[in-house]
């Protein structure tokens, strides 16, 4: 009986019981020969028995499996150090797993070449826990970066950046250097940058960590709109207020493993 979080079943992508036959890898081989059309029907993010160990022997994730469907929004919860950020980094190809398989948009991330990783990352909007914004660039310049990377027309960039900043009530500060902002404002800049391109996949790492409840609501509203527009969203958070009573799936990580 699968565990139920937030009203939806938690579907492990593989049988992770000790000693269970490792049929998933056979399945993956088969799936690689599937047509592009079939890929559309597969989970958008598929994490299969992934282990990540940091030197010397810190186990961040152990045999973790998770499938996220295209257009789904899920909450990844757990205490600090549970492995939430690590999982997001693995999905966004910032890091590589020691063991296991990660597929995003039907492609095994371990087999992607440099150019393919760049293409994949263009489809991912990530709001980092440490923001990763450029303090000397203006708010507008920071938020516009993902669209500039795709050489979007200037007018389109302007319209969309203003739209997102307005949604997060940051439009009045768009010409200020990002380094001059408070942490909460910088966090909103990071979220705006992740959302500006309407990416296929949004990974948000503690997106409301520095925000008050009113702004948190705005952030969740933006995510919900993007999700309704077709974006797949994974939100790592330990802020229960943003997922309490949600109709979306909630999965919990503890000590590098999913718990029921």
């Amino acid at each position: 009986m699968p565990a139920v979080h937030g009203g939806r079943p938690f579907r492990p992508a593989a049988d992770v019981r000790p000693g269970a036959p490792d049929t998933d890898f056979d399945n993956k081989v088969r799936l690689h020969f599937m047509s592009e059309q079939n890929r559309e029907n597969r989970p958008f993010v598929d994490v299969v028995k992934v282990t990540k160990v940091y030197s010397p022997d810190i186990v961040a994730l152990q045999d973790v499996s998770l499938s996220v469907d295209r257009g789904e929004m899920i909450f990844l919860t757990g205490m600090s150090g549970a492995g939430k950020s690590t999982l997001l980094k693995l999905i966004s190809c910032m890091e590589r797993p020691n063991k296991g398989l990660i597929e995003v948009a039907g492609r095994d991330t371990a087999k992607l070449k440099k150019g393919e990783i760049q293409e994949l990352r263009q489809q991912i909007g990530m709001a980092y826990q440490d923001f990763k914004i450029l303090p000397r660039h203006t708010v507008f310049q920071n938020v516009a970066m993902p669209m500039e990377v795709l050489y979007r027309p200037g007018r389109e960039i302007k319209e969309r950046v203003n739209e997102v900043l307005e949604a997060l009530r940051m439009d009045h500060k768009k010409n200020l250097p990002a380094g001059k902002l408070s942490r909460g404002e910088q966090q909103r800049v990071a979220i705006a940058r992740a959302a500006v391109n309407r990416p296929a996949l949004i990974l948000a790492d503690e997106p409301t960590g520095n925000l008050d409840s009113e702004i948190s609501t705005l952030v969740m509203k933006l995510f919900t709109e993007l999700n309704e527009g077709g974006s797949t969203i994974i939100i790592a958070t330990h802020d229960s207020s943003i997922y309490e009573g949600t109709s979306h799936r909630v999965v919990r990580l503890e000590h590098g493993m999913f718990t029921a």
Binding site: S92, M94, I117, Q118, I124, L134, M145, V149
Partner: peptide
Amino acid sequence: DAELEILRLLGASSSY
């Protein structure tokens, strides 16, 4: 350096 790191994470192409 910091900007290049962010561009890398955003999937900027080498030519970009």
